[in-house]
């Protein structure tokens, strides 16, 4: 399947157990989000705090057994911004300092570091969230966090049909390749785009058939998600742990460095 990324089709949830894993999804989403927000709020030059965050994230990765391959794959997503981060010290504003024999912009170095560390922590935390929460639970969580219902419904359809549609895409690619088609350059874009057009028509028609199937079972605009996940007080306390630790990191280092 030369033309299509295949890793995406199934999502990245892995079933394992610990209290973090089993945290009700709305609490987990809020918890991860606020942790990352604290990280983003921490100034880049607060070196010690960021190293501590990195340690927390690494422990979480290990504790939740997030596979290394996955971490590597997700880091690729960052590449454009990593490049940007590396250009900053070169094209950044003065003053310049000697950095291993190079005349580099000092603000640029700090800014590059700031981007790299925060983006990496962010990606890792998202990874921890998505690999410890089934996709469906993410939807339940968003609904509990008062996301617009319609948006959650659209997400639910997207999650349900991603595999179905990418399978169609793969079958089309196989059908093309079986007849000796090879996408080498822009000359072949027309063929690829025509497959895209066909895919749109199929998707649209499926949407209409799904709508019909929904109407047949009395759809009135609600998409009930059945689990009645009960969140205990302990869950809420556990949920605040992550952002609290992040705040504690800032406080402890501030006192310690004074």
């Amino acid at each position: 399947m030369g033309e299509i990324q295949s890793h995406i089709s199934v999502g990245i949830y892995e079933h394992r157990h610990n209290w973090f894993h089993e945290l009700p999804s709305h609490i987990k989403i809020a918890s991860v989000f606020s942790f990352v927000l604290v990280v983003v709020l921490t100034p880049g030059y607060f070196f010690q705090a960021h190293l501590s965050y990195a340690l927390i994230v690494i422990s979480l990765l290990i504790w939740n057994k997030v596979p290394l391959g996955l971490i590597r794959k997700r880091l690729i997503i960052e590449i454009p911004f990593v490049l940007f981060a590396f250009f900053l010290p070169i094209f950044g504003t003065d003053p310049r300092i000697d950095f291993f024999g190079l005349r580099l912009s000092e603000p640029g170095l700090w800014a590059g570091w700031n981007i790299l560390i925060k983006a990496t922590i962010g990606v890792m935390m998202s990874l921890i969230l998505s690999s410890t929460t089934p996709q469906r639970e993410l939807l339940v969580g968003l609904e509990k966090l008062k996301f617009p219902k319609l948006l959650v419904q659209i997400m639910s359809f997207m999650i349900r049909y991603t595999v179905v549609v990418t399978e169609e895409l793969k079958r089309m690619a196989i059908a093309r390749e079986s007849r000796c088609f090879e996408a080498k350059g822009p000359k072949q874009w027309g063929v690829l785009a025509r497959s895209g057009g066909a895919l749109f028509i199929r998707s649209y028609e499926r949407g209409e058939r799904v709508h019909m199937a929904m109407l047949s079972r009395g759809y009135t605009g609600q998409l009930p998600l059945t689990t009645r996940q009960i969140s205990s007080r302990q869950d809420y306390i556990n949920g605040t742990l992550l952002p609290l630790v992040a705040v504690a990191v800032i406080l402890i280092w501030s006192v310690f460095l004074k």
């Binding site: 033309e3 997400m155 895409l169």
Partner: peptide
């Protein structure tokens, strides 16, 4: 109307799938 959810949902999958197609440049 109430057709939004399935249609926009399938359109989202379509856009997502389109983004997955690599268009070779050189």
């Amino acid at each position: 109307d109430e057709k939004v959810a399935p249609l926009a949902g399938l359109a989202a999958v379509f856009i997502f799938a389109m983004q997955m197609i690599n268009f070779p440049v050189a």
